[in-house]
């Protein structure tokens, strides 16, 4: 039976290690969702990816039921791996936060494309490049 969608939201959580604390509690609690149930389901489904941030997109219906899908890790995580740095620079555009090639940028954009809603490859690359810049990561070559 069709149910009316009340909200769609994405939470970035530690795979396999979510708890009812924020952001889960603060975002889902208000919708009347039993937090521990969501946490158990997320942890079960993301248990193979422990150590990564795995965003989850939750669709909440009017009757407080919900469905969710796991998404690809944030672009920032992939950028850090590509640049071989553990943390990006603290200050956007200023300090050196590492370097990636245009080919690596394209690859990350390709992976992220399905999660960057309704965007084409060019826009996806621009978004990922923007994230890289904000982390102080330099992109070598033209893209």
């Amino acid at each position: 039976m069709a149910k009316k969608v009340r909200a769609v939201l994405t939470l970035q959580l530690n795979a396999g290690k979510a708890t009812p604390a924020p952001p889960v509690g603060t975002r889902l609690g208000g919708y009347g969702i039993a937090l521990v149930n969501f946490v158990k389901e997320y942890n079960e489904r993301s248990s193979a990816m422990v150590g990564q941030i795995i965003p989850v997109q939750i669709t909440i219906f009017e009757d407080r039921s919900y469905t969710f899908i796991l998404k690809t890790p944030p672009a920032a995580d992939m950028l850090r791996k590509a640049a071989g740095v553990t943390k990006g620079s603290g200050t956007p555009n200023m300090k050196d936060g590492g370097t990636i090639t245009a080919a690596q940028l394209r690859e990350i954009a390709q992976t992220k494309l399905k999660d960057l809603n309704a965007y084409d490859m060019e826009t996806a690359m621009r978004i990922v490049a923007g994230t890289a810049r904000s982390m102080g990561i330099t992109i070598q070559g033209r893209f």
Partner: peptide, 23 residues
């Protein structure tokens, strides 16, 4: 287009690296 960059910033300082994105 700024959401990824803001999420990265929030994850760095927020509790449990948690970020919520609502569209």
């Amino acid at each position: 287009e700024a959401v990824e960059a803001i999420s990265e910033l929030f994850a760095k300082y927020g509790y449990n690296a948690g970020v919520a994105i609502e569209e």
